[in-house]
Nucleic acid binder design. Structure first.
Length: 420
DNA sequence: TCTGGGGTCCTAGGACCC
DNA sequence: TCTGGGGTCCTAGGACCC
């Protein structure tokens, strides 16, 4: 059996852990630049605030209903996620961390010794007690079905007490007949539209289609999903693998028109990518730089361009990546536009130990030591303590984050104070 | 005025090989 | 009358996830 554990309204719940006064009240978390709503407490959902809603369109609702609004605090969410995952890992040797707030556990043979429902309730209580984060658990013979079970647990919290198990054919069919096809994991807007055109409305009807048709229309991906939903074990736990691409992209709070401003951003993004590469001990062989104007500003001329660069020698040096990213920027930058977003994406990643030398260029071995020193200093004394002169010279805030909460769990000066 | 960021996998088709 | 057969690799684009 597989269990899918999912944190309820994760980012909103993280904020609430340290603000218990917000329990029972609507809470939303906004994306970078305080742009869109990316997490909502149940109370906020009940107010009709949709996922991805532009914040400025909902300001009145926020105000009228006293909604607690937060800027995304990824440092906090990342740390809380680690805490939750480490607790979950104690309940099974086979774990797949699927996203920041979701985790699959494999319960092989566990049902011979434990009552799975009680076992799952114990997990829920421990995670809640040790971290303050509420979770839901779905258990079923396959991954796709555990997703379905989780959906049910979340939809009917009173009836299920946050745990639902699909352990019989009757329950499987009942669940699939209840689940709208667009809510199936792996069926997105395109697929569900095509299914609806064919008259398919529920997950169950999807599983009644012929293998040939599903494969023809939705490739092997769709077919695997169909089988998994039928209870045929198709999707297994996946091992934590190195990332195949690493990106740093941002929208700006204001629009930039000068090359120098973009150069600062792009070199900072390249350095951030380099840091992430070093953390996973990878080097990249290629990078892409893109810049674009604000597509929502129909009144302004639009421009969007990207360029890919193959590096002569694979690297994770901030200096090298920054140099090539700026080189790319020079080739695509055009005067006269208001730029709103830029990014650097590194790909064709290989392991640090497998760098292929280049006949015409030597690897500067000094970079490796320098990067090690920089990473060490920054991890000991705090982010960005050492950075390149080209980056962020005045330390200007480049993102709108007006409602940022403290880093309660990762910064000593932000630790919560308790008055007795 | 104000609209996020970071990933994965699969396929078709072109270019190339012998 | 009437143009072989069997491969690999790469890339762009599309779909999906959170």
């Amino acid at each position: 059996m597989f269990a899918l554990i999912d944190c309820n309204n994760f980012y909103a719940s993280c904020e609430r852990v340290f603000r218990p006064d917000l329990n029972g009240k609507p809470v939303v978390v906004l994306s970078n630049n305080d742009g869109c709503v990316i997490a909502r407490s149940n109370e906020a959902k009940a107010l009709g605030i949709p996922m991805g809603a532009p914040a400025f369109e909902y300001e009145k609702i926020f105000k009228d209903h006293n909604v607690a609004v937060f800027s995304a605090n990824y440092t906090l969410y990342g740390d809380m996620s680690n805490r939750v995952m480490s607790i979950l890992s104690e309940y099974s040797p086979e774990v797949e961390i699927y996203s920041i707030d979701e985790c699959f556990l494999k319960f092989d043979g566990l049902d011979r010794f434990f009552n799975l429902y009680n076992y799952a309730q114990e997990i829920r209580q421990r995670v809640k007690k040790w971290t303050g984060i509420p979770i839901s658990i779905g258990i079923a013979p396959t991954k796709a079905l555990s997703k379905v079970a989780n959906h049910i647990a979340k939809k009917f919290p009173e009836k299920t007490n946050g745990v639902y198990i699909i352990d019989s054919e009757e329950k499987r069919i009942k669940a699939l007949k209840w689940l709208p096809v667009e809510d199936v994991w792996g069926i997105g807007p395109r697929m569900s539209e095509r299914l609806k055109n064919k008259g398919i409305k529920t997950a169950y009807e999807f599983t009644q289609l012929s293998d040939e048709w599903v494969k023809k229309e939705f490739t092997i991906v769709g077919l695997r999903l169909k089988h998994d939903l039928q209870g045929i074990l198709t999707l297994d736990l996946e091992k934590q693998k190195d990332k195949k691409s690493i990106a740093t992209t941002r929208s700006f709070e204001t629009m930039y028109t000068s090359f120098d401003d973009l150069r600062e951003r792009v070199s900072t993004f390249a350095s951030l990518c380099a840091e992430k590469l070093r953390r996973q001990r990878s080097v990249c062989q290629s990078l892409m730089v893109f810049i674009r104007t604000n597509p929502h500003r129909k009144d302004l001329p639009q421009y969007s361009k990207s360029i890919e660069i193959n590096l002569p020698i694979a690297t994770n040096s901030s200096i090298e990546l920054s140099k090539f990213a700026i080189m790319g920027l020079k080739m695509i930058f055009k005067e006269g536009y208001h730029y709103k977003k830029a990014g650097v994406i590194t790909y064709n990643l290989i392991s640090e130990g497998c760098i292929q030398a280049n006949l015409f260029q030597e690897i500067d071995i000094r970079h490796k030591k320098l990067m090690e020193a920089i990473d060490k200093i920054n991890s000991t004394f705090g982010k960005n303590k050492v950075r390149f002169a080209i980056q962020d010279p005045k330390g200007i805030q480049k993102m709108k984050q007006e409602k940022l909460s403290p880093c309660y769990t990762t910064k000593l000066s932000d630790v919560i104070t308790v008055y007795v």
